[in-house]
Simulated scan of single mutants.
Amino acid sequence: MEHLYFDHGATTLLRREVKEAMIYSMDLFGNPSSLHDEGMRAKDEMEAARERVAGALGASPREILFTGSGTESNNLAILGVARRHRNRGNHIITTQVEHPSVLETCRFLEKEGFRITRLPVDDYGIIDPIELEKSLTPHTILVSVMAGNNEVGSLMPIPAIASLLREKGILFHTDAVQYFGKVPLDVANWGVDLLSIGGHKINGPKGVGALFVRKGVRLDPVFFGGGHERGLRPGTHNLSGIIGLGVAVQLAAKEAAETETRLTRLRGRLWDQISREIDGTHLNGHPVKRLPHNLNIRFERVEGQAVMLELNRVGIAVSSGSACSSGKGAPSHVLKAMGQSDEEAYQSLRITLGRETTEKDIDILTYRLQKILVALRSRIRS
């Protein structure tokens, strides 16, 4: 049986060029913080990776911090700003549909006395910049809004938000973990102050990420114990992961425009087939303003997890939600924020495409999905 992977929103296949770079890095056994020749060779390779990441984002190398993941980047951005700028204010604004690494960090900060505003979204999962502006106070120090939603794929108006906040001197962080590499991105054009990315969403290694911190933005550390990454991320560097990240980011940025076009076409083909051949289907998220690789669908009368398990049985991997929140039993907080009932939220399936996805794969998925839904719905009727 042919196995097909449609869960690239959870993680991606390590591409050949990245794997080769990481294998090469295994011989660089020196610690990048050491001053002898072996250490300096390792440091040179690490700084070359930093330059690759910076170049891909339109930043300077000094503005790039290496972390252990996109989640850690989000934590460092929010906690770092909150603790550094607490003397200026204690108000942070985010949205109801953020990744758990943002929502749970904000929940933790509430225990430390910070006031958190969680902006509502429309039926597509998108905030209104006017409502954001109304929520600003003289005590607002940070706004954190994700670029593209990890569950339903809807895109937030990042440049518009950045422009608004820049005029008011309020720092702006965006979680671009799902966005980067699928759509061209330049931090200078966006005007954000902090931006998070992760390696394993762009055919890079797991366990490594990066945080863009605009020149002049000051953070407090979250961890302690060394001067690594300008004192903001202590601990011996994950050299192999960083080198792999550098290659993955550089390739993803170079191919982003082509990737966006190809994935948008494939996603359109998949939705056209599913909506035409399977009744009772509803698209979650915006039909146009969405990540090109993301298709989140609600199927009437069946639970998404049941469909996911049946697809897995026939060799197709999809998701019933975010990989960071699946298995907890509760309905998606994103779909609930978009106005769906518990029953509707449980009926949803997330299909995410990637570099390896072909038109043939799309056709096979549609065929097997149709048969599964007919079988599942017939059981309900009987």
Rank of each mutant, 00 (worst) to 15 (best):
L119A: 00
G198T: 14
G226H: 13
N203K: 07
H333L: 01
L263T: 01
W190P: 00
A345H: 06
V183D: 01
I116L: 05
I158V: 08
L57R: 03
K201M: 12
R107E: 15
S326L: 12
L311Y: 04
P120C: 04
E167G: 10
G216V: 04
R265L: 10
P205G: 10
G327I: 03
E20V: 11
N189H: 11
L369T: 03
K111S: 14
E98T: 06
E260R: 01
L195D: 06
F29E: 12
N87F: 12
E131D: 15
G199V: 08
H85S: 07
V374F: 09
S275P: 07
H173F: 04
A306N: 10
L164W: 00
P331G: 03
A48C: 06
S320N: 13
S69C: 05
S240L: 12
Q96A: 12
G191F: 03
I78M: 11
G30M: 00
L185P: 09
E310K: 12
G191C: 01
S326A: 14
V307S: 02
K360E: 15
L103C: 07
A160K: 14
T140S: 07
Y24E: 15
A147N: 11
L194D: 02
L165F: 06
R381T: 12
M338V: 01
E344W: 07
P61S: 06
A147R: 14
V187N: 05
F29I: 15
Y346G: 10
A54N: 09
I170P: 06
G191S: 00
A48G: 08
F212S: 01
P157C: 00
D193C: 08
G235Y: 02
Q340F: 13
R115F: 13
E47W: 04
C324N: 13
D44I: 07
T140Y: 07
R41F: 09
R265C: 05
R15D: 14
I197A: 11
R83D: 08
D279C: 11
A317C: 11
P129E: 01
T71Q: 15
H99M: 13
T281R: 02
F172M: 03
T352K: 06
I278M: 04
V143H: 04
R86D: 05
L119G: 00
R166Q: 14
E310H: 08
T137M: 05
G58S: 09
L291F: 04
K201I: 12
F299H: 07
H99F: 13
F299T: 03
A252Y: 05
T236I: 13
S348G: 10
G39L: 00
R313A: 13
S101E: 05
K182Q: 13
P100G: 03
I126E: 00
A42C: 02
V213C: 06
T358S: 08
E72Q: 13
L14V: 04
A56F: 11
